[in-house]
């Protein structure tokens, strides 16, 4: 296993910029998710690593070796395509053993290896089946086994589960995680589904507009998104446009709270604040920051509420039984713990 270093990689298709100055170091054995909406360049990055496209500028090295001149099939890469790209005319075993057969390995060895892979992905006994006779989940497993058959150093997956229903997707995610940990193979997984990325990745690279805008562990990204885009992507932080002066912090004319020393500079800021750093009070006690409760729902042990604060919808959450209870339509007073807010970079 070896680490993959990518620095200042750029790629354009005609006048369309697909990737701009991409730099990321991926450690051996790491599970990285490239997360972003469609058209952000995540698939292009995957295809550059796979050698299916060539880049315009920048460098890629695998274990210190420059990848540029190495053709796709010699890079030690296994890939699961979005369409899976199974060979419809071959049965399961011949799909999985395709690469081994091309290498001219002897028959007994190929059979043994294919059997081992079938066992690993949970398809033992289905080797003779035609691809058309398999369920969606079984096809995914064949694609995974085929990609891993040549013992790749890097395992790439391009939104492989986007066509599966939710239950099956959960099951396949844990399978992939298990197999990846068993083999310890460096894995790069492209997805547009943040829950999937959170469930799988050691680290997530968030891509937007041809760039990587933040890389971090799921916890880091969840706790401290560095930009409005990431914060909104995770849908877990409130993003507020605020102005700060010596007296306090305001959103428009709405007073939010006293200025927390050392956190906010004077002037206009874009800040993020997590729902649990907000508290709701009955408005008649001290109507400093009045809002209206427009929605609330239980999420397990949490209650999540939406408050209309002068036109801006704010997400607030608290554990059930902690704090006061409200009815939809109640006037509430919003208290923010601004010492827990942070400034977004852009």
């Amino acid at each position: 296993m070896a680490d993959l270093k990518i620095s200042q990689l750029s790629k354009a298709f005609g006048t369309i910029e697909a990737l701009r100055d991409i730099s990321i170091d991926i450690e051996a054995g790491e599970f990285i998710c490239l997360l972003g909406s469609s058209g952000c360049g995540k698939t292009t990055l995957l295809r550059l690593i796979a050698g299916l496209e060539s880049h315009d500028h920048g460098e890629m090295t695998l274990a210190g070796q420059d990848l540029t001149a190495i053709p796709s099939h010699k890079r030690g890469i296994g890939m699961v395509f979005q369409s899976l790209a199974l060979f419809p005319h071959l049965n399961v075993s011949n799909n999985i053993g395709y690469g081994l057969n091309l290498r001219g390995e002897d028959r007994a060895k190929v059979t043994a290896e294919v059997d081992r892979l079938l066992g690993m992905v949970g398809l033992r006994g289905l080797g003779e089946r035609q691809i058309s006779a398999l369920s969606g989940g079984q096809r995914q497993r064949v694609a995974i086994a085929r990609a891993l058959a040549l013992k790749p150093q890097i395992f790439l997956m391009d939104e492989p589960f986007s066509a599966l229903d939710a239950a099956l997707r959960d099951q396949m995610q844990s399978e992939v995680k298990r197999i990846q940990q068993e083999l310890g193979v460096t894995t790069i997984f492209v997805t547009h589904d943040q829950k999937e990325a959170m469930a799988l990745a050691d680290r997530i690279a968030i891509m937007h507009d041809a760039k990587i805008i933040q890389v971090g562990t799921p916890d880091e990204l969840y706790a401290k998104p560095n930009s409005k885009f990431v914060a909104e992507f995770f849908e877990t932080s409130n993003v507020l446009q605020v102005s700060v002066d010596n007296d306090g912090v305001y959103m428009g004319t709405q007073f939010l709270g006293a200025r927390a020393i050392g956190v906010l500079a004077s002037g206009t800021n874009e800040i993020a604040i997590r729902p649990e750093a907000i508290e709701l009070l009955k408005s008649d006690e001290s109507p400093q920051t009045p809002g209206t409760l427009i929605n609330q729902r239980r999420l397990g042990a949490l209650i999540e509420r939406e408050v209309d604060l002068g036109g801006q919808i704010i997400l607030q959450s608290a554990f059930v039984g902690q704090g006061l209870t409200f009815e939809i339509g109640d006037r509430v007073d919003v208290r923010m713990d601004l010492s827990k807010a942070w400034v977004l970079s852009g």
Binding site: A50, G51, L52, S72, H73, I77, G78, M79, F81, Q82, S83, L84, A85, L86, F87, P88, H89, Y98, G99, L102, R103, R146, A149, L150
Partner: peptide
């Protein structure tokens, strides 16, 4: 023929001739 099926064969080490013989021709 989808582009990805051909790419999959290439990545698994098939030469142009092998792609033709083992994937394109049967399909």
């Amino acid at each position: 023929l989808t582009k990805e099926v051909i790419e999959a064969a290439r990545m698994l080490g098939a030469t142009e001739t092998q792609v033709f013989r083992t994937v394109v021709l049967p399909l």
